[in-house]
Each structure stands twice: as C-alpha cells, then as structure tokens.
Amino acid sequence: MEDKIVKTITRIIIPFIQLYGIFIILHGHVSPGGGFSGGALIGTSLILLTLVFGIDKAKRKIPHNVSEIIESGGMMVFVAIGIVGLALGGNFLANIETGFPLGEPGTILSAGMIPLLMIAIGIKVASTMNSLFHLLIEGEIHEDN
C-alpha cells in the first residue's frame, strides 16, 4: 500500500496501541482485562503493521522462527511457574501456600505470581495472533478467485 497518510497515521498510532495492551496485561489482576485481552490488542497492532507496510517488512521485524520461540517460551514460562508451586509442596499453580510475596492489595505488585502468569499469557497470545495472520496471507494467490 503506497498511501502516505495511512503510513504516517500507522507509524504514530502503533506505540499507543501497544502501550494500552501492556497496561491491560500489567493490570490484569486489579482491573478488567488480563493476559488474553492485552495480548490480542498487541497482536492487532502487529497485524496493522503487516497490513500497512507489507509482509516482507513485517517478517524482517519478527521472523517466523523468533515468533515460534516466543510462542513456546510463553507457554513454558506458564508451566514453569506452575511447577514452582508443585515443587514447594502445594498444588499445581499454588499461590499463597508456597510463599509468593503478596504485596499490597490493589497495586500492581500484588497477588503473588498472577502478574507473571499474565505476562506469559500476553506474550504467547500476541505472538500467536501475529504468526497466524502471517501464515494465512503468505504464499502465492491462486488464479480462480
């Protein structure tokens, strides 16, 4: 797409979308939202980047193998935090019994390990949305459309 207005507006608006997504992820345990909603917002900003600047430039920013590693890494962090609760003598994903610092209620640094889980889920969802869209639109277009 060779439209200067669309490119300029996109370049201005993408950091705000991503900042809003990070805000929703980090406030997942004290306000509405959470890992999935914030991750979907960040994934939408990456899809907007792909739509406006083309698949080649987006792939140069986030290649496929990096996206796969980030995806699997988010899931692995989630399982590892759950196993910490299991190893310290509680259930899977046990929070208070295993002595995570609870902090002050109502602030960001509270609720034990839930912010870490939210960050892991957000990274995984954003990367999944991005690679899903890249897998759909890459490759050649068939002639019978």
Partner: peptide, 25 residues
Amino acid sequence: PDVALTEAAVGAGITTILFVAVISR
C-alpha cells in the same frame, strides 16, 4: 467489562481481519 474488552479486541478486530484474509484467498 472483561468480556466486553475481549469481544472488542477479538470479535471486532482479529476475526474480521482473518475472515477478510481468507476471502482474499
């Protein structure tokens, strides 16, 4: 508001983009 946020991000954003991509193919 939690479901509203998810619906606005996924239902109105990502589902539409994926459907348009499939129609273009």
